[in-house]
Amino acid sequence: MSVLGRHQGGGVIAVTLLIALLLGIVPLPEGLRAWRPDWALLALLYWSLALPQRIGVGIGWLTGLLQDVLTGTLLGQHALAYAVAVYLVIKLHQRIRLYPLWQQSLSILVLLTLAQLLMLWINGIIGRPIHAWLYWVPSLVGALLWPLVFSLLRRLRRGFRVS
């Protein structure tokens, strides 16, 4: 079997990451913007948890760079946060997979919060203001949405036989 024949469904992964990136820039009313989860990171965490041999730090870095370009943030800010989060998921994927979804949500909360902490650190270095407690809300919302994201992406992965 050729190297290309071993894996399939790369297009499905790319499309879900693209949709997640687009969800991050969809205009929302002012009151809801603070509640928007980091869709791209949630999708990356799922794919790196489900297929750690295919979705690595490089894909996390590239997705983060795209997120930086789309959102107009400092180039490399999301890239660093996403790469670190994906690295940790890959290192811990065998443990995290064993957890029930509610415990996975707690792990995802830690990873999302760590990514936001890295971005907060970078914002502090470049002198951008901090947005008080609302800054942390997307991590909580992302963790609460994890069971839904996990179920939807798992259904897609199985339906399209992504391996």
Rank of each mutant, 00 (worst) to 15 (best):
G60P: 01
A50F: 05
L45V: 10
G76R: 11
A85W: 04
E30Y: 14
L74M: 14
L17G: 04
Q103L: 14
L42W: 08
S105C: 13
Y82C: 08
Q77E: 13
A83C: 07
L75Q: 09
I19T: 04
W121R: 09
A81C: 05
A115R: 15
I55M: 06
W136S: 15
L66E: 04
L49W: 10
L51C: 03
W39V: 08
A81Y: 03
G72C: 06
G127K: 11
R33Y: 02
L45S: 03
V86W: 04
G60N: 10
L23M: 15
W35Q: 12
L70C: 04
L118H: 15
L106E: 02
L101E: 10
Y82A: 06
Q94V: 11
A34V: 13
I59R: 11
G24R: 07
V110K: 13
L44K: 01
R36E: 02
L92D: 12
A40I: 04
Q116F: 14
L45E: 01
A40P: 05
L98A: 10
L62P: 07
G64E: 07
L106K: 08
L44V: 06
P27T: 06
V15E: 01
R36L: 07
R95T: 01
N123P: 01
H93Y: 15
L66I: 03
T63E: 00
I55A: 03
A20P: 09
L32F: 13
P27N: 04
S105P: 08
N123T: 08
L118M: 15
A132C: 03
T71K: 04
T113A: 12
Q104L: 09
P100D: 13
I130Q: 12
L45F: 00
L74A: 08
I126N: 05
D68I: 02
I55P: 02
K91R: 14
I130K: 07
S107V: 11
A83K: 06
A85C: 04
L22M: 10
L65F: 12
W136D: 11
I122V: 15
R95A: 09
L111T: 08
W47S: 11
A43G: 07
Q67G: 06
I90C: 00
T113G: 12
L88P: 00
R54L: 13
W35A: 14
I122F: 14
G127M: 11
G124C: 13
G24K: 06
S48Y: 09
R97S: 09
L74H: 03
W47F: 01
H131Q: 13
W39A: 02
R128E: 12
G76C: 05
Q116T: 09
H93G: 00
